[in-house]
Computed example of a mutant assay.
Amino acid sequence: MSDLQFDRHRRLRISENMRALVRETQLHTEDLIYPIFVLEEEGKRSEVPSMPGIYQLSLDLLLEEIEEVVQLGIRSVLLFGVPKEKDAVGSEAYNDDGIIQQATRLIKEHYPDLIVVADTCLCEYTDHGHCGVIHEHFVDNDESLPLLVQTAISQAKAGADIIAPSNMMDGFVAAIRKGLDDAGFENIPVMSYAIKYSSAFYGPFRDAAGSTPQFGDRKTYQMDPANRLEAQREAESDIQEGADLLIVKPAMTYLDIVREVRDRFNLPVVAYNVSGEYSMVKAAAQNGWIDEKEIVLEKLTSMKRAGADLIMTYFAKDVARWIQN
């Protein structure tokens, strides 16, 4: 065989230390953003049935969760509110004493260095479950914008470090950026859900947040999963309107979009490893069909390899433990 000419790629795979030495993509605890659902109740820690290991937490139990997050080295959390009362315009979203505002103040009082990302949307707060004001069963884009601005300002006043609008209204970044600037919050970045598909992977989240639409669906404002070029237009618009970070949601089935956004734009890219992706892995692992740790690490590494700088994931605490060990 000495007369054959070929490359010996296996030389760099010969041992674990050798593979680690030349590893191209690294997953770090600092890359992770951990979503938390906060209940407007007391003494309640309720596991989400479709999301094993994920809980709705009442405000009085929140700091226990935050302490664990901090001890694990996770530097960012994403807050979703589950209010007691809802109405047609989601007024609890922009209530200065709303559940997200209370949770943010509590976290910043005890852990001022932890980055609090506030989800800025109305769907958790409206009685119809849609992300804006409804007129004749249709979400009114322009009438919804001022309410989103009020929500963002209220969250910033409470101490949120990053505003993350997830509603997919046209012009939502421009409106929120101007609103924040006018209110004196010009240093608060906007982490835009720039590319958010109308995905079947959101079901478990809607259980956790109580945000299932009471009629119709969200396909008139969230993106068609079949579209690729539209994602570039959406991202470009948000950048022009003042976005500081770009989210691609979901992540696992849209890695091609993550890569294209990374290649075309120079803002930080955030991949959202959504609830359905989490629940599928959990269900398979509980049935003994897969190795959960290996699957999760491979999946999240693929998001980094595709170009994500940050990853929003319900696996954040597990991953932080695995990295530490």
Rank of each mutant, 00 (worst) to 15 (best):
G90T: 08
V82M: 02
A158S: 15
K157T: 10
A164T: 04
V70M: 08
I115S: 13
A93N: 02
E47W: 05
V173K: 09
L59P: 00
T126N: 08
L63K: 07
E64F: 08
H135P: 00
E65P: 02
L39K: 15
L57K: 01
R75S: 14
V48D: 01
G132C: 11
M168C: 09
I54P: 01
I162V: 15
Q101W: 07
R105C: 06
V149A: 07
E41A: 15
H110G: 02
G179Y: 12
G81P: 05
Y55D: 01
T104R: 00
D142F: 06
L59G: 02
D140N: 14
C131F: 10
E136G: 10
M169Y: 01
D119F: 02
A88K: 14
E40Q: 14
D127M: 05
A88E: 15
C131Q: 04
D97C: 09
P112V: 10
L79Q: 08
M168R: 03
A183L: 08
G159Q: 09
F172R: 13
I99Y: 11
P146E: 13
M169N: 08
N95Y: 09
S76P: 06
I163R: 00
I115P: 05
L122D: 04
A103C: 10
E109W: 00
C131D: 04
L61Q: 15
F80G: 09
K84A: 13
V69G: 12
P83H: 08
K44N: 07
V139W: 00
P49I: 05
G171K: 12
S144V: 11
A152M: 11
G98D: 09
T104F: 04
M168G: 02
T104P: 11
L78Q: 02
E67T: 12
A164I: 05
M168L: 09
S58I: 06
L180M: 09
L57P: 08
M51N: 07
D87Q: 09
A93V: 03
N141W: 05
D181G: 04
P165V: 00
Q101D: 07
P165M: 00
D142W: 02
D140Q: 13
R45D: 04
N167S: 15
A160K: 12
D170C: 02
S154G: 15
C123Q: 00
A118K: 11
V48N: 00
A158V: 12
L122P: 01
T120G: 07
L147Q: 04
G132Q: 06
F172H: 15
D119T: 01
T104C: 14
E67K: 14
M168A: 14
A152Y: 11
L59Q: 09
L122I: 05
K157I: 12
G81H: 02
D119G: 04
I115R: 11
L106A: 13
K86Q: 11
